[in-house]
Write a protein that binds this DNA or RNA. Structure first.
Length: 144
DNA sequence: GCCAACGTTGGC
DNA sequence: GCCAACGTTGGC
């Protein structure tokens, strides 16, 4: 079970949009490193939804519905896409400010490489004190 | 609105 | 294949 973070500009597609849709396919990722990460995603993995722009925070949790598929939006046929479903909204968003303020995450891609849109989440963050107790209990209750 | 960081493009 | 120029992203 791996953990990931996907970025999206909420004015393009917000976590609320995902909540409404139930699931969506994460297409249009072309960056080489982001694609490398995306290829390693597996069905059942959990993913943080990180909202860029004004929010700059992890706002929700998603679950991967299936292994990577060829990206239908990619004409070259070399890129993959992943379908995710909404799990729940975080009771308290984890802000970029809070993540940057914690020395444990200074090496993390989210901090080091602002433009990377798909990346692994260190276990220390997934379940760290940055996530509210209510959210940790909720994660525990659904078996993760 | 600005700019740093980074990726991509195209001329050589 | 190199690298300068340019475009884009995303935080400030």
């Amino acid at each position: 079970m791996a953990h990931w973070l996907f970025k999206e500009e909420p004015e393009s597609y917000s976590f609320a949009d995902l909540g409404r849709d139930g699931s969506t396919t994460w297409t249009g990722v072309t960056n080489t490193l982001a694609q490398k990460h995306l290829r390693a995603v597996k069905k059942g993995d959990l993913v943080f939804f990180y909202a860029t722009g004004k929010l700059k925070a992890v706002v929700g949790v998603m679950e991967v519905s299936g292994d990577p598929i060829p990206d239908p939006a990619d004409a070259t046929g070399k890129c993959v896409a992943v379908t995710v479903q909404a799990v729940r909204k975080l009771a308290s968003p984890v802000t970029l400010t809070a993540i940057k303020a914690d020395p444990a995450f200074v090496e993390w891609e989210l901090v080091r490489q602002a433009r990377l849109s798909v990346m692994p989440v260190p276990d220390e963050l997934w379940g760290s004190c940055l996530i509210s107790e209510a959210d940790i209990l909720s994660l525990g209750r659904i078996g993760y």
